[in-house]
Design a protein around this nucleic acid. Structure first.
Lengths: 173, 173
DNA sequence: GTGGTCATGTAAGAAGTTACATGATTCT
DNA sequence: AGAATCATGTAACTTCTTACATGACCAC
């Protein structure tokens, strides 16, 4: 059920076509938050439009349809964002791997921890660059772009992960 | 495909029945890493057994079957843990919400950020207690229990999330 | 003996993946 | 004219969710 809110949120931020939404899922959004292929996007857009949560704002070349969130859609998005998430239903491969480290031989665990530390540092650097770019593109006083806060979040998560891996290595001796 | 590795990893750590695995998914594992209901667990165990990655180690009362990872299973787990994850396929509702904050009115965004900061602090406290308990139960020099590293990870993630929310609030003014 | 937990299962439907497909426009 | 990208779609299959179901054991 989250896909619909991902779409609704993006359309509430700014009207887009299915194709543009697909491109966003291929960027940071899909890497850190939520991914969907176009074969899921288009049917879900049709359903959202059926339910009156979004509407076709413009039709362009090559059958392009630009959708925008309706007032009902914005209200529904807001309602969802303020609803506490159900707990205990994680689906995070990265964290799963951390749990499973305990099942390996210590030397394997150390190898993985070292690569986690390195990867996280690398990812943090990438996101720091993304954040800096977004800041540079934003005139002072203007609304920060979609994803600026999330980029900062990813940056901090990766640094925390790096520090955790170092802590774990030290603790293992 | 991750469910099978979750099961394989738990069984490589220690032999368990489907029912015990289900209980683990209801605890920290399911809350932070990976969740599955029993209706997915049992069929997947059957498939893993079919493929020779796990085997029935013991049959008990009430039809209970205790499974254990085979050598082939351990090798497959290890192979998977050392395979780099495909990027760009996140499915994380929490992070999705952060992205969508940009679509709300500033006052709504502030309200959510404040509640994120509070929730994270609360969760971090909970995990700090879990970690302390696990440490207290572990005799010096012994292998730390399954999930100890993950508890530390969760703790650090929640603190980073709390700090991020405070940063975002400050930045919004 | 009966209420709770243990222990596993089936089945229908929704969501997600993967392969295949097609036509329109733009760029060079 | 041909290649690349834009833009959307169908269909088969797998995975996940939710509702329903059943019997065995244990404690009181």
């Amino acid at each position: 059920m989250s896909l619909r809110y991902a779409l609704l949120g993006m359309l509430a931020y700014e009207p887009s076509s299915g194709y543009e939404l697909k491109k966003m899922f291929e960027g940071e959004l899909g890497e850190y938050a939520w991914h969907a292929p176009h074969t899921r996007i288009y049917p879900e857009l049709a359903r959202l439009a059926d339910e009156g949560l979004i509407e076709v704002a413009e039709e362009g070349a090559r059958g392009r349809r630009t959708y925008a969130a309706t007032e009902a859609g914005r209200a529904e998005l807001r309602r969802w964002l303020f609803t506490p998430l159900e707990e205990g239903r994680a689906r995070n491969v990265h964290v799963l791997r951390l749990f499973l480290l305990s099942a390996l031989e210590p030397e394997d665990t150390r190898r993985l921890l070292r690569s986690y530390a390195d990867d996280s540092e690398h990812e943090a650097d990438k996101l720091a660059a993304v954040a800096a770019d977004l800041d540079a593109e934003t005139p002072a006083g203007e609304r920060p772009p979609f994803g600026r806060m999330a980029a900062e979040f990813g940056l901090r998560m990766h640094r925390a992960r790096r520090d955790w891996a170092r802590w774990a290595l030290e603790r293992m001796g």
